[in-house]
């Protein structure tokens, strides 16, 4: 599988390392060169330096060939825009976006973008830990 990851922060790089270790083809985009320091020796994919809200960068990453696109930047609106471009313009069937503000999740659903919300997930985990103990 070719998986395109946008954002090489803590989450993006973790995912990239993990998927790469599993033998998937991974390309990671970040606009900061230093972000790629988060990648470990397990990572065998490619890195691309640039702003993924620029269409040309997505083209350079051969987004049209991607099986999965994951937008993991720390900016909800950037993730939303990239996810929409991947889905609506390039017709990528599996697109995931990270969204921090739970209030925005509803709109993402209306736009039919699958989301992962770290805030909601943490709260659920906290609650589970509290009530299970």
């Amino acid at each position: 599988m070719y998986i395109l990851i946008v954002g090489c922060g803590k989450a993006g790089s973790y995912l990239a390392n993990s998927l790469s270790k599993k033998g998937e083809e991974v390309v990671v985009i970040d606009k900061k060169e230093s972000a790629f320091n988060n990648l470990t020796s397990e990572f065998t994919g490619f890195t691309l330096l640039g702003d993924a809200t620029e269409f040309e960068i997505l083209e350079e990453a051969k987004i049209e060939q991607a099986d999965v696109v994951v937008a993991t930047t720390t900016n909800d609106n950037v993730n939303s825009m990239i996810a929409q471009i991947a889905k609506e313009i390039f017709g990528i069937s599996k697109v995931l976006a990270r969204v921090f503000a739970p209030r925005r999740e509803e709109i993402y659903r209306q736009m039919e973008i699958d989301t992962v919300c770290p805030t909601t997930l943490s709260v659920m985990e906290f609650e589970r830990a509290i009530f299970d103990s």
Binding site: N77, M81, Q84, I107
Partner: peptide, 14 residues
């Protein structure tokens, strides 16, 4: 641009 896009979509959809 990404903020402007999201704001307009939010305004229209929500």
């Amino acid at each position: 641009d990404q903020d402007n896009l999201f704001i307009c979509q939010l305004a229209e959809l929500k």
